[in-house]
Design a protein around this nucleic acid. Structure first.
Length: 953
RNA sequence: GCCGCGGUGGCGAAACUGGUAUACGCGCAGGACUUAAAAUCCUGUGGUCGUCAAUCCGACCGUGUGGGUCCGAUUCCCACCCGCGGCACCA
């Protein structure tokens, strides 16, 4: 085979095959001495296949893996597909294909593409989340969560699209409208399963401050903000019927308000509760409150309309405040002031206690509300502008730092000291209790959909009516105590809470689940609960998932009493599938599936199977490989996915299944590749697939180009002009190394027949030394850049090195072999195929027909196809080291400045450059320096050894 | 509004702890080779001005804007403008 120039297609597939056959990227999982778990976020397989954005991420991960492998680590770089879930189902919906069928098509296409990019994947350990051998363990995980009191079911509002008749996730709701059909999304109350992630809020936050937690600040801050810890106080306000008459002074109830600013409490003039607040409900249901009929109907109307409001309507209203007076007052025990009690939908039941104390002088929303309802505004803080006038306009509302006024014992204090003092005071009096709240909500795990792991729970009506629970009474009590720790809302749980009221919700919706009577987990030996093959799998929006229609699926034996019971028909959120996959990868063993003949699930199966203990992971292997050494993924997942997988790992640790509580030693967020200034997306139609580029320039050129685009954590804009440039660079390397191989072959004359041939001269000693120094510096710089994932500058340094070698144009055959070996070695992570091909030829001393490849009209170099002997891959070769002695230059250039302005550079010996006097002496010799110093007095000389000499005149 | 990231030539971008701004590449211009083109190679390439020209010489200006600290600032501090991403009536 004769190859005139670089033709990647002629060898890329070949090497991919050889690598896989020889298993050079398949570490010995049980016996590895220096394990390094190099993990990338697995993709969900869209039908369009990989786009260059995916490839950018995977290549960046792979380069790091290859680098670590060459540094001597046993690198484990697994790959899989996150193919279960709403994304995949929606796509199947769109093209009208069954999700399982589509999954197989996508899988094939994805794996083909993933192979074509030349990553060092451990293919034997791949996994798919829709594989029954995988999701049986996802279900197992659910069961563990339930048994440990971390999974519960309660009614909760969900996004619902009346047109698509489906429940939507928050991400699918854009500005209150359905992502797909653009119709208004409404909130609907539905029974949902939750994971109690809030119980771990404190620990999830706390761990981010640990020294061992080596994530970038950016991501750490993202996690912390999402958890959203707030220290504040819950203040009690007794409710009375009226401010005037003696009789009406009796306390009928109390309202608890959460606030982070109790310092402003002397300025509180009203209290507002959410329409869903239990007291609002009591106003309507409790006749003993003796509410006038008219008022009651006003309240009813307000509560009912605000409950019906769509998010669209809320947005349309903007900040315009609405509300209704309840007829009741709250007593501010601090001042005795009787604050009117209102209901308004700007107060959210989900946050804090669902009740707010209004301080209109120091909160814009409160001010807006006060203006609307003509409530008094009191100033209690003076800001840095010393304005102490009456607050009459929204612009005057003082929300910033300042000093207290009109606040009794707080006067004169700054707001932070006042806050502390007030909290102490209220606590002491028993009027308030310090609390910590979190923004984090419990994780809604259930989906009324088809394409997911069925939630492995069974509900028995009979057991439920007999109050039988999986939990013992003590356990349930324990759970309750633990649950109340971070929550305050259960305060409102009342005895009669199970009575339905006019609005179709129960007070207990905001309280805590009981013992989950009647609910039992599917026994572990019966897992997986296989997803039935359904032709009628489309979502209907009845509030139940498609599985509910399948009688044979729904009917089950009660694990407790053995009677007829019903299976849960919701499936798990995709985030659960992806929350633990990294724990599974290293423990996958190749076996025959036992689900082979059972049903259509066997179609989804590959030949692997679970290991034979009763855990989804092998203890020894997990000990060796986890936590993950390096995790690289997109910034869009830095909040939810990372938080969920941290939570699951922490929980598994606490249940005794793992010995570590944080899953990832290091996390790195890569940037995003955009196209034409916008994120690549189907709707924008700007998806760029890698296939055409790989077929034209090869995977190496695309990989290297993508990495050269800019810093890896910044992403960039894809342009196809750039890839041509990278192709040219690789061609230069190909030619350079090819020339060396050809010309150093003594059997042919390297310059024969070359029109431009110059006399063969040997490089001078000085030139050789210079090149050697350059080589060591290049190795040093590439090494350091790779350690920090600075791929763009690493490539720049390789280019500089290539330029330096190119200077020897006609004498390259006289250069030492290591010059080229090291070039290939440092380039290998970026361009694995080409370097492997050249490495192979270089090691073999491949015979060539003509060495004149460097000349115009050159005759070809022959590249015979010979099977590579084992374990001589460049990718298993040790990374080159550099010798610091070559990094020291004999002569250095010193910049001479006058008053900080560069005027001259002088070249002096390295030794002299370290000494100020010597450098000065040298500088004075320069005419230019003399010119600038003429007639001036030198006041000061600043000297930075080896760098700068600055005269201050 | 809050949080995070960014703003440097025609373009993608370098500059690591304050120390010669624009490395490396793309593009562009000119040249070599060629009948010609492609490919390849070489050279140049921040701006303005130096009362004609100047590839060789010199001056000044230049890292979003305006200030500050310093012998010296892309880098540190203060105030602001613009772009991107996330959250948002969060008490």
């Amino acid at each position: 085979m004769i190859v005139k120039k670089l033709d990647p297609l002629s060898f890329e597939k070949k090497w991919q095959k050889i690598w896989e056959e020889e298993g050079i990227y398949q570490p010995d999982l049980a016996g590895a001495g220096k394990p390094f778990y190099n993990l990338m976020m697995f993709p969900y397989p869209s039908a369009e296949g990989l786009h260059v954005g995916n490839m950018y991420a995977f290549t960046g991960v792979d380069i790091f893996g290859r680098f670590m492998r060459m540094k001597g680590y046993d690198v484990f770089e697994p790959i899989g597909l996150d193919g279960f879930g709403i994304h995949s189902e929606n796509y199947a919906l769109k093209i009208g294909k069954h999700p399982a069928e589509q999954a197989k098509v996508s899988e094939k296409n994805f794996y083909r593409q993933l192979k074509s990019i030349g990553n060092g994947f451990a293919w034997k350990n791949r996994l798919e989340t829709y594989d029954p051998d995988y999701y049986r363990w996802t279900q197992w995980l659910f069961v563990q969560m339930f048994k440990n009191g971390l999974a519960y079911k309660k009614k909760s509002p969900v996004n619902f699209c009346p047109s698509c008749k489906t429940v939507l996730s928050d991400e699918q709701v854009i500005d209150g409208m359905c992502e797909r059909c653009k119709s208004e999304v409404v909130k609907k109350q539905m029974e949902q399963w939750f994971f109690r992630i809030t119980r771990y809020a404190g620990k999830l936050l706390q761990n981010t401050f640990k020294q061992s937690f080596k994530w970038s600040d950016k991501v750490k801050i993202g996690q912390r903000n999402w958890i959203g810890k707030k220290e504040g106080i819950n203040i009690n306000y007794p409710i009375i019927a009226g401010p005037v008459s003696q009789e009406s002074q009796t306390t009928v109830d109390e309202i608890i308000c959460f606030t982070t600013r109790p310092d402003t409490n002397f300025g509180a003039t009203f209290v507002v509760i959410a329409p869903e607040h239990p007291f609002a409900e009591r106003l309507l249901s409790d006749n003993s409150l003796k509410l006038p009929k008219l008022l009651k109907s006003h309240i009813f109307d307000y509560v009912a309309t605000s409950r019906k409001k769509t998010s669209q309507e809320r947005i349309a209203e903007g900040r315009e405040k609405t509300g209704v007076f309840t007829g009741f007052y709250c007593v501010n025990q601090l001042t005795g002031y009787k604050m009117p009690l209102y209901i308004s939908d700007f107060v959210l039941m989900e946050f804090g206690t669902g009740a707010v104390v209004g301080v209109p002088g120091h909160d814009k929303r409160d001010f807006e509300f006060a203006k609307k309802f003509n409530l008094p505004v009191v100033r209690v803080v003076i800001g840095s502008d010393n304005d102490n006038s009456k607050i009459e306009k929204i612009g005057q509302v003082q929300e910033d730092e300042g000093k207290m006024v009109n606040s009794g014992f707080l006067d004169g204090l700054d707001i932070h000291k006042a806050t502390e003092k007030m909290m102490d005071f209220l606590t002491e009096k028993g009027w308030g209790k310090r609390v910590t709240t979190y923004r984090l909500r419990d994780w809604c795990i259930s989906r009324q959909r088809y394409w997911g792991a069925p939630i492995p729970m069974i509900y028995c009506q009979k057991c439920a009516s007999e109050e039988k629970s999986w939990f013992s009474a003590e356990e349930a009590e324990q759970n309750k105590i633990r649950n109340t720790k971070h929550e305050t809302r259960n305060k409102f749980k009342k005895q009669n809470s199970n009575d339905q009221n006019n609005f179709g919700f129960r007070i207990s919706d905001f309280g805590f689940p009981d013992r989950m009577a009647g609910w039992f987990p599917v026994p572990e030996k019966d897992l997986p609960v296989l997803l039935p093959d359904l032709s009628d799998w489309k979502p209907e929006g009845t509030g139940k998932g498609p599985l509910a229609k399948v009688q044979s699926f729904v009917t089950a034996k009660c694990p407790h009493c053995g009677g007829e019971a019903q299976r849960e028909t919701d499936v798990c959120d995709t985030f659960l599938d992806s929350s633990w996959y990294f724990l599974r990868y290293p423990s996958i063993k190749i076996q025959k599936s036992k689900f082979k003949s059972q049903n259509f699930n066997s179609k989804l199966k590959s030949e692997k199977n679970e290991i034979t203990n009763n855990l989804p992971w092998d203890k020894e292997i997990t000990k060796k490989w986890l936590p993950v050494s390096m995790y690289i993924g997109g910034a869009e997942h830095t909040v939810l996915h990372l938080l969920y997988s941290r939570f699951i790992t922490m929980a598994m640790h606490d249940f005794g299944f793992l010995d570590f509580e944080e899953p990832y030693r290091q996390f790195y967020a890569h940037g995003l590749i955009i196209a034409e200034g916008a994120k690549m997306s189907k709707s924008k139609g700007n998806i760029i697939g890698p296939d055409t580029y790989i077929n034209k320039y090869g995977a190496d050129a695309l990989r290297t180009y993508l990495m050269f685009l800019g810093p890896f954590d910044m992403g960039g804009d894809f342009r196809d002009t750039g890839i041509l440039g990278m192709h040219k660079f690789l061609k230069r390397v190909w030619k350079l190394v090819g020339d060396f191989i050809a010309k150093s072959d003594k059997t042919t004359s390297g310059v024969a027949g070359c029109s431009k041939a110059k006399a063969m001269t040997l490089p001078t000693v000085k030139e050789s030394e210079k090149l050697t120094r350059f080589m060591h510096r290049a190795i040093k710089e590439v090494t350091e850049d790779l350690e920090k994932l600075r791929y763009n500058t690493a490539i720049a340094h390789i280019m500089e090195y290539v330029n330096e070698i190119s200077n020897f144009e006609f004498r390259i055959s006289n250069l030492p072999k290591e010059v080229f070996q090291n070039l290939l070695l440092v380039l290998a992570p970026f361009a694995p195929h080409m370097t492997e091909e050249l490495w192979f030829r270089l090691q073999q001393g491949v015979k060539t027909t003509s060495g004149a490849a460097g000349c115009s009209g050159a005759k070809a170099m022959t590249l015979p196809m010979v099977k590579k002997p084992e374990n001589t891959s460049i990718h298993l070769h040790p990374w080159p080291s550099f010798d610091p002695k070559y990094l020291v230059e004999d002569e250095v250039v010193i910049a001479v400045q006058v008053n900080g302005k560069l005027r001259e550079t002088v070249k002096i010996s390295n030794l002299k450059s370290q000494i100020s006097k010597e450098a000065e002496k040298e500088a004075y010799k320069s005419e230019k320096v003399q010119k600038y110093l003429a007639g001036k007095t030198i006041r000061k000389v600043i000297f930075v050894p080896g760098k700068i000499l600055n005269f201050v005149v």
